[in-house]
Design a binder for these strands. Structure first.
Lengths: 138, 138
DNA sequence: CTAGAAATGAGAATCTTTCGCATTTAGATC
DNA sequence: GATCTAAATGCGAAAGATTCTCATTTCTAG
């Protein structure tokens, strides 16, 4: 029963929130914009207002249920948080997204923050490149 | 004569482009939005259209004269390219921005791209934290 | 100096996201 | 289960950033 997740997160278990959470959990696509979520829900016959999708995703972010990315800079992309932190590597040709974790980089970031007198709160790292598929298609 | 820079970059040396380039070179602030550039120019009595500022900054980016950042995700921030690549560490309280270069991270990124079958084109790394000033002000 | 291509400026248009507010709903209490 | 109140929703309007359109101006090659 997913409503537990919402309650735990301090959010009332409303119909729109449950729909959105369920959709994120069941979607095979891991990275989606608010518009993507909205349209996909409409397509499956689920009525939710676009403004609500934006609001709910922002609340989910605050609650730690999803992470907001700025892959391209313009619009936000959301990803369901399932466990451990990871960074992303994206193909600039086809838009493919892969995930990775690198302890060396994680450690260096913390050290750099320290060296500069900062207490680290967060970080964002994206590697852009051309994936193997797109390289061979060249 | 700055018009050389523009010619080299394959851009016609027009008045607006020269004004914007000169402004970027002389500004003590290194990171600015298009709006910032526009308003600052207006304040110094230089007439340039906002649309032109956007166009020119985008052209400068393509020409490699400036780098576009997405610090906060919504609007673009531009920085004049003066030589070596560097990454950024930002204070989430006061907006301060510091720069750093870390060879270990650079090397790991290239390795990660390779391990994932990507040819690396670019990367963006931002560390978010609280700077020393803001920590003591707490 | 002149012509043609490229660039500019001003405002309209677009896109993404947020806001305002009247209506509905979750969930605590009776 | 009925009731109440704060919180949430949905809609359309509004906002902010950026791009587009197109008439006018300006480079720059010849």
């Amino acid at each position: 029963m997913e409503s537990k997740d919402l309650k735990q997160a301090g959010l009332k278990a409303t119909v729109p929130r449950l729909k959105i959470l369920k959709f994120l959990e069941e979607s095979k696509v891991r990275h989606m914009s608010a518009e993507d979520v909205y349209k996909s829900l409409l397509d499956s016959g689920e009525e939710v207002g676009l403004a609500t999708v934006y609001r709910v995703l922002t609340q989910f972010e605050s609650a730690g249920l999803v992470t907001r990315h700025h892959f391209e800079g313009d619009h936000s992309i959301f990803e369901l948080n399932d466990g451990e932190h990871h960074d992303h590597i994206l193909c600039v040709k086809c838009g493919r997204v892969d995930e990775f974790v690198d302890d060396v980089i994680e450690a260096r970031q913390a050290a750099i923050a320290r060296e500069n007198g900062y207490s680290m709160e967060d970080h964002s790292l994206y590697i852009f490149g051309i994936c193997s598929d797109c390289q061979s298609k060249k």
